[in-house]
Every structure is written in structure tokens, then in C-alpha cells.
Measured scan of single mutants.
Amino acid sequence: EDYYQILGVPRNASQKEIKKAYYQLAKKYHPDTNKDDPKAKEKFSQLAEAYEVLSDEVKRKQYDA
């Protein structure tokens, strides 16, 4: 799945936009606030993985290549 789609940001998003999108979605899908939703944990880990790659310039360049 596309990391940009997961975070809901365009491919040319700035680091600030990526961070903002991640924090909004992380708050929304955090397992502690969605105890009754088994998919929230999965969504949250996808968000974390996408953010880890896109927030790191080197990893992001490799991902975009």
C-alpha cells in the first residue's frame, strides 16, 4: 500500500504536512482510544510505518525511487 495514501498527503508533501497528518491520524486510530475496533491497531501500525519512512529524508528518497 502507498505510504502517501495511508497518511493522506500528496507525494510532494512537506515534512511539516507529513508530521501533521501523522499526528492527526495517530490520535484518531490509537489503540487506546479504539479498544473495541480490532482494525485500529493494524491501521495505527501502518501509519507508524508510513511515517517512519516518509519522515526520514533518506528513507523517503529510497521509497520514492
Rank of each mutant, 00 (worst) to 15 (best):
E1V: 14
E1W: 08
E1Y: 12
D2G: 06
D2V: 03
Y3A: 03
Y3R: 02
Y3W: 06
Y4L: 01
Y4V: 00
Y4T: 00
Y4F: 02
Y4D: 00
Q5F: 11
Q5M: 13
Q5S: 12
I6G: 01
I6R: 09
L7F: 03
L7V: 03
G8D: 05
G8W: 03
G8N: 09
G8H: 10
V9G: 00
V9M: 04
P10N: 11
P10S: 13
P10W: 04
R11M: 05
N12F: 07
N12G: 05
A13I: 02
A13L: 01
A13H: 01
S14A: 05
Q15E: 08
Q15N: 13
K16T: 15
E17C: 09
I18F: 02
I18H: 00
I18L: 07
K19H: 15
K19A: 15
K20N: 15
A21P: 01
A21K: 08
Y22I: 02
Y22K: 01
Y22H: 03
Y22P: 00
Y23Q: 15
Y23V: 15
Q24F: 13
Q24Y: 15
L25G: 06
L25K: 07
L25S: 06
L25N: 06
L25F: 04
A26R: 14
A26W: 13
K27C: 12
K27Y: 08
K27L: 13
K28P: 04
K28W: 06
K28F: 08
K28S: 09
K28N: 09
Y29F: 13
Y29I: 09
Y29K: 04
Y29R: 05
H30Y: 09
H30I: 08
H30T: 05
H30N: 11
H30E: 10
P31H: 08
P31C: 07
P31E: 12
P31I: 05
P31W: 05
P31S: 11
D32Y: 02
D32I: 13
T33P: 08
N34T: 10
K35D: 11
K35E: 08
K35F: 12
K35L: 12
D36S: 11
D36C: 08
D36I: 07
D36L: 10
P38S: 10
P38H: 08
K39M: 12
K39H: 14
K39W: 13
K39S: 11
A40S: 09
A40F: 09
A40V: 09
A40I: 13
K41P: 10
E42M: 11
K43C: 09
K43E: 06
S45K: 13
Q46A: 13
Q46W: 09
Q46S: 10
L47I: 15
L47Y: 06
L47A: 05
A48R: 09
E49W: 07
E49G: 08
A50L: 03
Y51H: 04
Y51W: 09
E52K: 08
E52C: 08
E52P: 02
E52M: 11
V53Y: 03
S55F: 05
S55H: 05
D56Q: 02
D56R: 01
D56I: 03
E57Q: 06
E57V: 12
E57I: 10
E57R: 05
V58G: 09
V58M: 10
V58D: 14
V58P: 03
K59E: 03
K59W: 04
R60P: 01
K61Q: 11
Q62C: 09
Q62H: 11
Q62P: 01
Q62A: 14
Y63F: 04
Y63S: 02
D64T: 02
